[in-house]
Design a binder for these strands. Structure first.
Length: 476
RNA sequence: UCCUCCUUAGCUCAGUUGGUUAGAGCACAUGACUGUUAAUCAUGGGGUCCCCCGUUCAAGUCGGGGAGGGGGAGCCA
């Protein structure tokens, strides 16, 4: 018999038909009632077996075991579920020794413990919900851009460009570690390496995305990104997924509009398609925060927070305005900030948090940063001091989007690169777009895991990617 | 990398002023019961108290060092 997904049985609520279901046992009560989950949805189907069931089958129906059930869907005789399966035949597909199985759901295992058994944590309600939501968000990313005529551009994972300065990079090499070929001055001879030059894993697909945009008009990337920073925080990964749209003819305002539409669209898509999972995650957050003092709890529930983002425009301010707000804030006057505030500084986490969580209480887009704290490719404003950068700051997450209008004027771009000691000859391919048919264009990068954090209400980025890579951790 | 907290049974955690035999719930085993919803009840097995060194008559408990993890910060997205 063809397998039926548990989601289909639970949502249709039809009765009196025969089915086959397969899944993993979540609980087995009273030698009669199996809570079975196949990952198709949050809920379990209750499978009822007779008290006369074969003993050599019953003894292998343990938490974690994988079973196949043939039976009839009937209206449940008990309370707590509308339909259940009266089993005619149960086959043990995979035994699970309960004494050795590390995942004991009744103990409400901690997120930290589950991280250590990340290969099994998919079998919990929480991680099932997270990864279904993550999938939906990823799908919505492609749907959003596809519906608007963007081309999905696969930018390279291996790159020889280290010009962007977006952080430490992972070296890609086939040279022997212990005895690499060397030049006369003792430095490593990369001409002998696989690519004939020094190569690394990409830290951003932006520069290549710009090349595509300067012909295809609208492109986006969505791929893995690698940073070899020794960052040990709940918001950083060494391997993460980044989305980088790049649009010809867009200015900084178009760029902000695109980012806002994009964020709203994928949240709305998840709200529509993963309502049950999000409601479960909302309840999880409430339960988790019960242990916190009142003043540290979220003002809004998860669902309310997402609805708020859907229904309210993001606040748009300039960097200069942000500094003025901070200087005028009670927190500044009471010397609550650890880092000083003055025009020209890079905004610290505490400053961003104040703006987003205390002052505006909604996502904030900050534009017009001082050029000295931003990357070379950002378009210089007429004031000679600032660039057309934009950062979107989200409550609880911090920077979720970083973007800019790009400097399309060759002379200004070259001058800036020279000031920042970026080799213009090596970057000829980037500069060629400004030499041959240049035009204003803009784009941004969005950290996908940070988006998943925001939507699921989780607080550690290691819990929203299946197998997190962080300093000293590449397990699984 | 810095600050801070934590590490006791397979899991979650208690363990008083340093005191003699380290506990509970869950999980597991055996038995009972059978329309349960984290099923229930009874009985039972289960410990490198993270590691090393030290103080002490005596260390899970105090001190020093180390490892791993959490939270915050920096770097960064």
């Amino acid at each position: 018999m063809q397998r039926t997904k548990i989601k289909e049985i639970l949502t249709q609520e039809k009765t009196d038909y025969t089915v086959n279901v397969k899944g993993w046992v979540r609980s087995f009560r009273n030698n009669q009632f199996i809570a079975l989950n196949d990952g198709s949805c949050l809920g379990n189907i209750q499978v009822v077996i007779g008290l006369d069931a074969a003993e050599d089958v019953v003894k292998y129906i343990t938490n974690g075991a994988c079973i196949s059930v043939d039976g009839t869907v009937i209206a449940s005789l008990g309370k707590g579920q509308k339909v259940e399966i009266k089993a005619d035949n149960v086959v043990i597909l995979g035994e699970c020794d309960p004494e050795k199985f590390p995942l004991q759901l009744k103990n409400k295992p901690s997120l930290e413990y589950l991280r250590e058994i990340a290969h099994l944590r998919f079998r919990t309600n929480t991680f099932g919900a997270i990864f279904r939501v993550r999938h939906t968000l990823a799908y919505a990313v492609h749907k959003f851009f596809n519906d608007r005529g963007f081309v999905y551009l696969h930018t390279p994972i291996v790159t020889a460009s280290d010009a962007e300065g977006a952080g430490e990079m992972f070296r890609v090499s086939t040279l022997p570690f212990d005895n690499p070929p060397r030049l006369e001055d003792g430095s490593i001879d990369y001409k002998e390496d696989f690519f004939g030059r020094c190569t690394n894993l990409t830290v951003s697909g932006q520069l290549e995305a710009e090349l595509g945009a300067m012909a295809l008009s609208e492109v986006y990337t969505f791929g893995p990104t690698f940073r070899a920073e020794n960052s040990n925080t709940a918001r950083h990964l060494a391997e993460f997924w980044m989305i980088e749209p790049e649009v010809a003819f867009n200015d900084i305002t178009d760029n902000m509009d695109l980012a806002e539409d994009f964020i709203r669209y994928i949240i709305a898509y998840a709200m529509e398609h993963n309502r049950e999972d999000l409601e479960f995650l909302a309840q999880r957050l409430v339960d988790e925060e019960k242990q916190k003092p009142m003043n540290e709890r979220s003002e809004l529930g998860l669902i309310e927070k997402l609805e708020f983002v859907l229904n309210n425009k993001f606040e748009r301010i300039t960097y200069t305005q942000a500094i003025d707000i901070l200087l005028d804030s009670p927190a500044y006057k009471k010397k609550k900030f650890q880092y000083d505030v003055k025009w020209g500084i890079d905004l610290q986490s505490e400053h961003e948090r104040y703006l987003v969580e205390k002052h505006f209480k909604k996502p904030v887009i900050v534009t017009g940063y001082p050029k000295d704290i931003k990357a070379f490719y950002m378009r210089q404003n007429d004031d000679g001091k600032t660039v057309a950068a934009m950062d979107i700051l989200a409550p609880g997450i911090g920077e979720i989007v970083g973007g800019s209008q790009r400097e399309e004027r060759l002379d200004k771009l070259m001058t800036r690169m020279e000031e920042m000691h970026i080799p213009t000859e090596e970057m000829y391919w980037y500069l060629d777009t400004r030499r041959f048919g240049t035009t204003p264009h803009a784009g941004f990068g969005l950290g996908f895991e940070r988006m998943v954090l925001f939507v699921t209400g989780m607080s550690n980025i290691r819990d929203v990617i299946p197998f997190p890579r962080t300093p000293k951790n590449a397990e699984f």
